[in-house]
Computed example of a mutant assay.
Amino acid sequence: MITAATVLINGGPGDPVEPEESELALTLMTDVLDEVFQMPARVQKARAARQAKQRKGGEPPSTQA
Rank of each mutant, 00 (worst) to 15 (best):
V43C: 01
L24M: 15
Q38W: 08
D34N: 11
L24Q: 13
P40T: 04
A46L: 05
L26N: 08
R50S: 04
A46T: 02
P40Y: 05
K53H: 07
A49Y: 02
D31G: 14
T27C: 09
Q38Y: 04
V36F: 08
V32P: 04
V32N: 09
A52I: 01
T27F: 12
L28Y: 03
S22L: 15
L24I: 12
M39C: 03
F37Y: 05
M39H: 04
A46M: 05
K45A: 09
S22D: 14
D34G: 07
M39D: 10
F37H: 02
D31R: 15
R50N: 01
T27R: 13
A46V: 02
L26P: 00
Q44W: 01
Q44L: 07
R50A: 05
M39W: 03
A41K: 03
A46Y: 00
L28M: 09
V36L: 09
E23N: 13
Q51G: 07
A52Q: 06
V32Y: 10
V43A: 03
L26Q: 10
A49G: 05
Q38D: 11
L28G: 01
M29I: 15
F37L: 08
A25E: 11
T30Q: 13
R50I: 00
Q44D: 10
L26W: 11
L33F: 14
K45M: 06
E23A: 15
A49Q: 06
K53R: 05
P40D: 01
F37E: 06
L24P: 07
V32Q: 08
Q51W: 10
T30M: 13
A41F: 01
Q51D: 15
A49S: 06
Q51K: 10
K53Q: 04
V36D: 08
R47I: 04
P40S: 02
V32R: 12
T27G: 09
M29P: 07
Q51N: 12
R47H: 06
L28S: 03
P40W: 04
L24V: 12
A41W: 00
T30Y: 14
V36K: 06
D31K: 14
S22Y: 15
K53V: 02
A25F: 15
L24N: 10
A25M: 12
E23R: 14
D34H: 09
R50D: 06
A41R: 04
A25L: 09
V36T: 04
A48S: 06
E23P: 07
E35D: 12
